[in-house]
Design a binder for these strands. Structure first.
Lengths: 153, 153
DNA sequence: TATTGTTATACTCTATAACTATA
DNA sequence: TATAGTTATAGAGTATAACAATA
């Protein structure tokens, strides 16, 4: 009977529920001043975090979705000039998806909105608690993702 | 430039990505030995956490979804005898959704699987880190949910 | 007529399967 | 013929709108 564990899981569930809400995404795009659906935002922010152009398969792997899904959204982002296809330097016959200048700006705005939400929530926290949260969340992420990956094979 | 903040957000995103994956839900239902879709599981676990029968509107509010969505899934769960409608003690003309005995068992299995994933990930952690994670995650959940709720009006 | 829930409908998100291209 | 990606299709998830019921 681990009370800490239950509280952790339950708090995590509440967070996910609040952040996955449709209205939450509306607020995000409103605040960022863009008109993008959720997969679009995920792909742009993923590319921004990666810091370099990535192949379709790598994006799908990173976002844990199937590649046709990525293909469709990348095509639409490409039409809107937010991403473009560039040659893969490691493999001349392949392409990578790169953020355009505008895409970089839009991705930055979207990422910033989420970050600001966390920032707002943590505003009254001590520097020590913020540092501890960061350390433990990062550790949890690493350990839980590894644990789950182990279950998938 | 808050490095802790970025790490917190980014770790959180990874966790959500891994847990929202379609295959993750497959593993959950496999491990629990049930055949339920994601909304079904969410509703059952929500009722179990609540510890008492709840009205449709309250479930929708708790899960942050619209009520027609809850209506549909509750109807299907009712047909499968996992939930049943009982009179609202506070308001004789209204109904509440209650877990049946079997529903309680199924909900418990589902909740336990997720809890065990976290448990597995935290197995090597010190008791102190586990307690700190629980405290900080709970605090984050409260503060961030409140912060977001403030943005929704 | 205000509240709560339901029915009907449509849109968004994501998966699977079948196909294409390229080496 | 393996690999990466695309096209086509279908299913899951959730929202909106219109309606019904009950007080």
């Amino acid at each position: 009977m681990d009370e800490d564990l239950n509280r952790t899981v339950s708090a995590f569930r509440s967070l996910v529920t609040a952040l996955n809400r449709a209205k939450t995404h509306e607020r995000l795009t409103e605040a960022a001043g863009v008109r993008l659906d959720r997969p679009d935002v995920k792909i742009l922010v993923h590319l921004l975090d990666a810091g370099e152009p990535r192949r379709i398969g790598a994006i799908a792997e990173g976002l844990q979705v199937e590649s046709p899904h990525v293909t469709r959204h990348v095509s639409s982002l490409e039409q809107r000039k937010l991403v473009e296809r560039v040659r893969d330097p490691d493999d001349g016959r392949a392409w990578r998806i790169a953020l355009t200048e505008e895409g970089t700006e839009v991705a930055g705005k979207c990422r910033r909105v989420t970050t600001e939400w966390f920032e707002g929530a943590l505003a009254d926290w001590s520097a020590q608690d913020r540092a501890e949260l960061s350390r433990l969340m990062d550790k949890l992420s690493g350990d839980l993702c590894a644990h789950l990956k182990g279950l998938m094979d």
